[in-house]
């Protein structure tokens, strides 16, 4: 048993599951947006903004945003523990990743909900 306090779930199985589930959400979101653009190639600004004003779309977008943040956290945490060996530097990198992801989520909520 290797203890770890900086990984997202502090548990390998939890992190692994988050990585898998968030990947499925991101794939579904990407396919949906791609499908939308393919099906209506002449999208106008009104149609596009109407799509994102729909509550269901807002929930889906927020879900994708949180999935992206969680997915990136697990991935970058893994990379940092592989390649950055000095503890101080690794912690700094992880902290920077955490702040950036938090900022993106907070900003994303503002954008998606038009606050």
């Amino acid at each position: 048993m290797v203890a770890s306090v900086t990984s997202l779930g502090r548990n390998g199985l939890y992190d692994w599951l988050i990585q898998r589930v968030s990947a499925v959400v991101l794939a579904a979101y990407s396919l949906f947006l791609l499908g939308y653009l393919v099906c209506s190639p002449e999208t106008t600004y009104e149609q596009w903004s109407a799509l994102f004003e729909n509550t269901l779309m807002r929930i889906f977008s927020l879900l994708a945003l949180i999935s992206l943040a969680a997915h990136a956290w697990v991935g970058l945490w893994t990379i940092s523990t592989d390649y950055i060996k000095p503890t101080g530097l690794r912690f700094l990198f992880q902290a920077a990743c955490g702040i950036v992801m938090f900022a993106y989520v907070a900003w994303g909520i503002q954008v998606i909900w038009g606050l």
Binding site: M1, V2, A3, S4, S7, R10, N11, G12, L13, D15, W16, T78, T81
Partner: peptide, 12 residues
């Protein structure tokens, strides 16, 4: 199994 549950032992 309890010994293998962490982020490194198996999941790396």
């Amino acid at each position: 199994l309890a010994e293998l549950d962490d982020p490194f032992s198996v999941f790396r």
